[in-house]
């Protein structure tokens, strides 16, 4: 059941040394540091090498940051326990999917071979996005309606979920231009868009389950500035 995933990860190790969250060390224990990236280039899944400041690596790196942020949020949800166990399982599944998102981004849709494209296709039937929507709907039912802006707050788990949400937005911003140029599947951009909605809802849900009040936006009153001698405008 695992062999397909395993085979493709092995190939990743051969093709991509440093693009993702993870590495695979095979028999003989090669060193983690390959030094091949010291000159500022890294390899895509297709074997092509590009400078690390290429937009593809920006997108991959941000996706990686997102998975790390979700790992953190998941940990705090584990700590919180009561009422958010469902979220813990979902977040783990999302982390796996982000790995697949990474494979899609690392395989330029406009230049990879057909088998590679097929192997790294993401959410062709829209099922993963639908899952997110189902999860959102189910949590939303329990939540009080939003009547004002809320601030990232509501306990550690909720706050960490908001951080993940904002990183998800940044990932989406990096991916959208690539999707426009058809270098990444559009489904990836759609998934990331829905993911930030999901994380927002999770943030509210976790706060509610923790019995914590979410901090609501209030217009801060600026103190009245004493008029002193006018400063000449530059």
């Amino acid at each position: 059941m695992f062999s397909n995933a395993f085979r493709s990860t092995v190939q990743f190790r051969a093709g991509v040394c440093s693009f993702s969250t993870t590495r695979l060390l095979l028999a003989g224990r090669p060193k983690i540091y390959t030094k091949t990236g010291d000159k500022g280039t890294s390899a895509l899944f297709t074997g092509e090498r590009r400078p690390k400041d290429d937009v593809v690596f920006d997108a991959l790196g941000t996706n990686d940051e997102l998975s790390s942020s979700i790992g953190l949020a998941r940990e705090f949800c584990l700590d919180q326990g009561d009422g958010v166990q469902g979220i813990v399982g979902q977040l783990e599944q999302i982390q796996c999917l982000l790995q697949d998102v990474g494979s899609n981004i690392a395989t330029p849709r406009d230049s990879a071979t057909a088998p590679r494209l097929a192997r790294t296709e993401f959410d062709a039937d829209g099922q993963h996005v639908e899952d997110l929507e189902t999860w959102i709907d189910s949590m939303d039912q329990e939540l009080p309606p939003l009547t004002s802006f809320i601030l990232p707050s509501g306990g550690k788990a909720a706050a960490a979920l908001h951080v993940a949400r904002s990183v998800s937005r940044r990932t989406e911003r990096m991916v959208v231009p690539l999707a426009h140029e058809q270098r990444v599947d559009r489904s990836v951009a759609i998934y990331l868009n829905r993911l930030s909605d999901y994380l927002f809802t999770c943030g509210r849900y976790a706060a509610m389950k923790a019995g914590r009040q979410e901090v609501v936006y209030k217009k801060p009153r600026a103190p009245r500035v004493k008029k002193t001698s006018p400063v000449p405008e530059e």
């Binding site: 990860t9 993870t22 695979l24 790390s68 982390q95």
Partner: peptide
């Protein structure tokens, strides 16, 4: 030895180190 991709996980210390790793990139 690593036999598979791992996800940022493994407790607070580990996860924060993973987060630092991704920011390092």
């Amino acid at each position: 030895p690593l036999r598979n991709f791992i996800l940022p996980s493994g407790g607070e210390s580990s996860i924060f180190l993973h987060q630092a790793r991704s920011i390092c990139r």
